[in-house]
Amino acid sequence: MRVAIAGAGAVGRSVAQELVANGHDVLLIDKSPAAIRRESVREAEWLLADACELSSLTEAQLQRCDVVIAATGDDKANLVASLLAKTEFGVPRTVARVNHPSNEWLFGEGWGVDVAVSTPRLMAALVEEAVAVGDLVRLFTFGQSSTNLVELTMPADSPLIGTRVGSVPWPERVVLVAILRDGTPLTPDPDRALESGDELLFVTPDDQEAEISALLSPRP
């Protein structure tokens, strides 16, 4: 997979290192000469250019990319880079960093953003996930589909403790993707029984989150 990253700061370089380690081709783009630190990610390509300029993205041959990640510290730049990538170069997938939570509402289909990553929201979700038992916690939102990755830790008084996964009347359009048990990820096999303390990960539309909660952790 070929990935272009707009913004070669600490965030962009860290993402590039992970992607290179996983065998992907990475291009880092930044307009600041000080950010061009080739020794930090030697396997990546580097381009000194402004990712908000159409001519720069043409030079980068963005049409060859499978994913563009807008990872600068400027929300305006991330929006423009995402929009150009999607509308001018037909990049299949765009991921944009949200620096200021008040701008999060802008990061959607209208600006060419498929997935918006907000660090404050992720941190809050991880804190909730670590301490909440029986409460549904939204971990991630997929940009264009109104679909979320959510987590629920099975409380000891859940009526479905001991029930086989395949016997649970899951709500329509809800997909159980993994079970975390004692720190170990397990596949949601139909014959696997649910246990107290299991962390269940679902992909679900917004309008069915309440049904998951009512099913697994009913409240008076």
Rank of each mutant, 00 (worst) to 15 (best):
A51T: 02
A51R: 06
C52W: 00
C52S: 14
C52V: 13
E53M: 13
E53I: 07
E53K: 09
L54T: 12
L54W: 10
S55K: 10
S55N: 09
S56Q: 00
S56C: 03
S56D: 02
E59Y: 03
E59R: 15
E59A: 14
E59N: 12
E59H: 08
E59W: 03
E59G: 04
A60Q: 06
A60W: 04
A60E: 01
Q61P: 04
L62N: 02
L62I: 11
L62A: 06
Q63D: 13
Q63N: 15
Q63H: 13
R64T: 12
R64Y: 01
R64A: 13
C65G: 03
C65H: 13
D66N: 14
V67G: 00
V67N: 03
V68H: 01
V68N: 08
V68T: 11
I69F: 06
A70W: 04
A70D: 09
A70I: 01
A70C: 11
A70L: 07
A71N: 06
A71G: 12
T72Q: 10
G73M: 07
G73Y: 00
D74S: 07
D74C: 08
D75C: 01
D75H: 05
D75M: 02
K76W: 04
A77L: 05
N78L: 05
L79Q: 00
V80E: 00
V80T: 09
A81I: 07
A81K: 03
A81L: 00
A81E: 05
A81G: 01
S82H: 10
S82E: 09
S82A: 15
L83A: 14
L84H: 04
L84I: 11
L84S: 01
A85S: 15
K86N: 06
K86E: 07
T87D: 15
T87I: 08
T87N: 15
T87M: 11
T87A: 13
T87L: 10
E88I: 04
E88M: 10
E88S: 14
E88A: 14
F89V: 12
F89P: 05
F89L: 11
G90M: 00
G90K: 07
G90V: 09
G90T: 11
G90R: 04
V91K: 03
V91T: 10
P92S: 11
P92G: 00
P92F: 01
P92R: 14
R93G: 00
R93Q: 12
T94K: 06
T94V: 12
T94D: 04
T94W: 04
V95W: 05
V95T: 05
V95S: 03
A96N: 01
A96P: 07
R97G: 01
R97A: 03
R97I: 03
V98W: 03
N99R: 13
N99F: 03
N99P: 07
N99H: 08
N99K: 13
H100K: 14
H100P: 00
H100R: 15
H100M: 12
H100V: 13
P101C: 03
P101A: 02
P101W: 05
P101T: 11
S102T: 14
S102R: 15
S102L: 12
S102M: 08
S102N: 13
N103Q: 12
N103E: 13
E104F: 14
W105V: 14
W105L: 14
L106V: 11
